[in-house]
């Protein structure tokens, strides 16, 4: 039983924020890539991240996963400043499926085991098969060389691999780009299930606006390094700002 105070606390806005960004700026020597990003990602929600190519979506992910640090601004993850995390712990808690499905040398099992083998643990074979089934591949794939698989198959394996650490926050970078319609739908179902079953907070970069509306609770629209609109995902159906209108009209360009 909760006391009244605890119950109210659970509902308070602060507790429901998984990631809080405050005025994030990031750039390289020559270019500013992210410009003053401020916003909240809510716990247990699927937030889709859309925007033109080169608008800085993948770069934002690399900051959230601790692969890079912003020049200015703060990132708070589950109430804790990102700089206070041990980098290894952070990367296990904020999982990422990279835009490019990179396979390490060896078979599928070795690839699936990677997150655990890096910690000196082993992945049980049953568990590996379970994960394979989850992403729509059967047991026979377990000992096939990862390098020989198709782009779509590699993409699925890279999704499963990121689930192995059971991260409370999961970043997905265009994970269905090399899949056909039917497989795309399967993966959407899978992610939806992960989100419901484990209350995983998910941010999903997609170029597929249809997908963004159907699977996302919330949406962020980024244009040219700025977060131009954010909110419930039906904002994509009637956008306010001109930048977003233009982006939606022009599709990907």
């Amino acid at each position: 039983m909760f006391t009244y105070a605890e119950e109210v606390n659970c509902l308070s806005e602060k507790d429901s924020i998984a990631i809080k960004l405050n005025n994030i700026n990031y750039g390289t020597k020559n270019v500013e890539i992210l410009k003053g990003i401020t916003g909240n990602i809510y716990k247990g929600k699927i937030t889709t991240l859309v925007g033109p190519s080169g608008s800085g979506k993948s770069t934002l992910f690399s900051l959230l996963n601790g692969m890079r640090s912003p020049q200015t601004g703060t990132i708070i993850i589950n109430g804790k400043n990102i700089n206070e995390f041990d980098p290894l712990q952070l990367r296990r808690e904020v999982g990422i499926v990279l835009q490019k499905a990179v396979m390490i040398n060896g078979d599928v099992f070795k690839n699936l085991s990677l997150p655990l083998s890096l910690q000196g643990k082993t992945l049980a074979k049953d568990k590996a098969i379970e994960y394979l089934k989850l992403i729509g591949l059967n047991e026979s794939f377990l000992h096939r060389q990862a390098a020989d698989l198709s782009g779509g198959q590699q993409q699925r394996i890279s999704i499963a691999r990121s689930l192995i650490n059971e991260p409370p926050i999961l970043l997905l970078d265009e994970i269905t780009s090399s899949l056909d319609q039917a497989s795309q739908h399967e993966i959407e179902q899978l992610i939806s299930n992960v989100n419901k079953e484990f209350a995983t907070t998910i941010i999903w970069i997609t170029h597929n606006l249809q997908q963004a509306v159907t699977i996302g609770h919330d949406t962020w629209v980024m244009v040219d390094g700025k977060l131009v609109e954010s909110g419930s995902s039906n904002l994509l159906e009637n956008p306010k700002s001109d930048e977003v209108k233009q982006f939606l009209k022009g599709g990907d360009k």
């Binding site: 996963n65 290894l88 990367r91 999982g95 990279l98 490019k100 990179v102 997150p115 990121s162």
Partner: peptide, 20 residues
């Protein structure tokens, strides 16, 4: 570089990421 970044994102140490 891709492999190194992958291992880092999965929570591997710098040494693990550069081992190969």
């Amino acid at each position: 570089r891709d492999e190194t970044e992958l291992i880092l994102t999965l929570g591997g140490t710098t040494k693990q990421s550069i081992h190969h």
